[in-house]
């Protein structure tokens, strides 16, 4: 009925007499009316003035969301899915072909590799990371993988808690990363021998034993990766947590792209770290487990550090030949 009323109004229009308009000598606001097409030619978004004190409400039309949507719904799942899957495949293949790195024969003497604070920090970051990673992945894989068998309602509830978890664990994660910077950045400063270590492929490809301090070059790369990646995730995450407080919608879209992409790559990289820290290398887990490692293991992987800690005086035999290492590989 109401539409009919509008139509009824139009019936008046139809019968309206034609009446030629005179050319105007002054400004004619009707003739100069802004049109959407014309405005889109000038700007990517259309906006103007609004009385409510809310800047985002000033934007009328911003089609850029469509690119973000394309990224978020097509590229990001592919980037994340492909990189994570590829990494898993590589690790599985590596494990199957090469097997874990065997530890040197135990000396029976254990030295402290990571103190309590260090381990606590590590596990705080690790736990947070796993939760963040999984709940993060839920933002784009959840509806594709979990929702079908969990049902909309339960999945909604789960995802809401996942969102809270994601928001909450961002803080211990960030604190942990900052603590790591304090704890480990000195030992992770690049040194000349890192270059040798890298050239030798961390001992995997080189023929000679590679020397390493407390952290080898691979670990240092991982460390700085975690620090930079972590901070990037934190900063982008903070912006997402406080949407539109710092930037507008378009920048939010970019932020989200950055957060998602870095996150996916981060997860991918950490998978490798988890591999080496657990089943990929015998004895490595202990370093973060009870904090101690066998002196032999230490000499095997971090000879310079082992020397430093245990002292040359305690050395009972020369470092094992590099060949030995390779043989065990």
């Amino acid at each position: 009925m109401k539409c009919f009323r509008l139509l009824a109004l139009l019936l008046f229009f139809v019968g309206a007499p034609a009446f030629a308009q005179q050319p105007a000598s002054g400004p004619n606001p009707t003739a100069q009316s802004a049109t959407e097409d014309q405005l889109f030619k000038q700007e990517r978004t259309i906006g103007g003035r609004i009385t409510i004190p809310d800047e985002r409400a000033q934007v009328l039309i911003q089609p850029q969301g469509r690119y973000w949507r394309q990224f978020h719904e097509v590229y990001l799942p592919w980037i994340a899915g492909a990189s994570i899957l590829l990494m898993l495949i590589v690790l599985v293949l590596f494990y199957m072909i090469a097997g874990p790195t065997r530890a040197a024969a135990s000396t029976g003497r254990r030295i402290i590799r990571f103190g309590f604070v260090e381990r606590f920090t590590h596990w705080m970051v690790a736990t947070s990371f796993i939760i963040l990673g999984l709940t993060g992945l839920n933002y784009f894989f959840g509806k594709r993988l979990i929702m079908p068998w969990l049902g909309a309602s339960a999945f909604g509830a789960f995802s809401e808690w996942a969102k809270y978890a994601h928001n909450f664990f961002a803080w211990p994660f960030t604190l942990g990363v900052l603590a790591m910077v304090v704890l480990w950045s000195r030992d992770n400063m690049p040194r000349r021998l890192d270059w040798a270590w890298l050239k030798a492929g961390g001992g995997l490809t080189g023929r000679t034993h590679v020397h390493a301090g407390r952290f080898n070059a691979g670990q240092k790369i991982m460390f700085w990766g975690v620090v930079l990646g972590g901070l990037a995730m934190f900063l982008s995450g903070l912006m997402l947590l406080l949407p539109l407080v710092f930037v507008g919608v378009n920048a939010m879209q970019v932020t989200n792209i950055a957060h998602g992409t870095i996150g996916a790559l981060f997860i991918t990289a950490i998978l490798a770290h988890i591999y080496i820290g657990t089943i990929g290398m015998e004895g490595a887990f202990d370093a973060m487990g009870d904090g101690s490692v066998d002196l032999a293991w230490a000499r095997q992987h971090h000879d310079l550090w082992a020397d430093e800690v245990a002292g040359s005086a305690t050395r009972e035999e020369p470092p094992p030949p590099a060949e030995g290492v390779r043989q065990r590989l």
Binding site: F13, P17, F19, Q21, A24, N28, P29, T30
Partner: peptide, 26 residues
């Protein structure tokens, strides 16, 4: 204004919301 193709002239010190729909603003 629409039906009669009428002239809508707004004379005002201020370019008002009404003036925006005028055919002539003075």
């Amino acid at each position: 204004k629409e039906l009669n193709k009428a002239n809508l002239i707004v004379i005002d010190p201020r370019f008002t919301r009404t003036a925006a729909h005028a055919t002539e603003y003075v």
